[in-house]
Amino acid sequence: MLKQMILAGFGGQGVMSMGQLLAYGGMLEGKEVAWIPSYGPEMRGGTANCSVTISTAPISSPLVTEPDIVVAMNRPSLDKFEPMLKPGGILFINSSLIDRPARRTDITVYYVPVNEKAGILGESRVANMVMLGALLQAEPVIKPLSVMESLKKVLPENKHHLLPLNAQALAMGAEVVKEKSNKKTVCNVG
């Protein structure tokens, strides 16, 4: 198994930590992983993205130019990375903020309204976890449990009371994917 992903959005949407949780969780499962961020001024206000590779065999190149999975948390990210997806790849669109449907017709698309879902939980900052839950439901590159294990290690003790909230967000994202209406193998959503 070799899966390469690009996760993108604007600064503050938590795309970097989403990628790090995937990489950390993969490492805890004994898989080969790599995480590469975009860096520079674009991190401060503009679009940020990171590439994640998870593999059961040693990773030759961790540079992701033809991703299996793209997560677009905002419109500029969708415009930039949708064309790079491998044919047959999976695209996750944050339908809370993105006003256009996917253009590709050779991929699977999930529309996930992450900000609305996070709003239901009363914490806008877990929007990225909703998206992560959706991603792992559609393509189980690692177990959601490994994400929770990683969170435990990454979060300082005094933030551990937030763990249940994050677990809820993951589950909520998974539910969105389970609902067939949010999945489009051929793009025709207006």
Partner: peptide, 8 residues
């Protein structure tokens, strides 16, 4: 890239 990349 090498400087910014995370690996186990």
């Amino acid at each position: 890239i090498l400087g910014q990349m995370m690996e186990p």
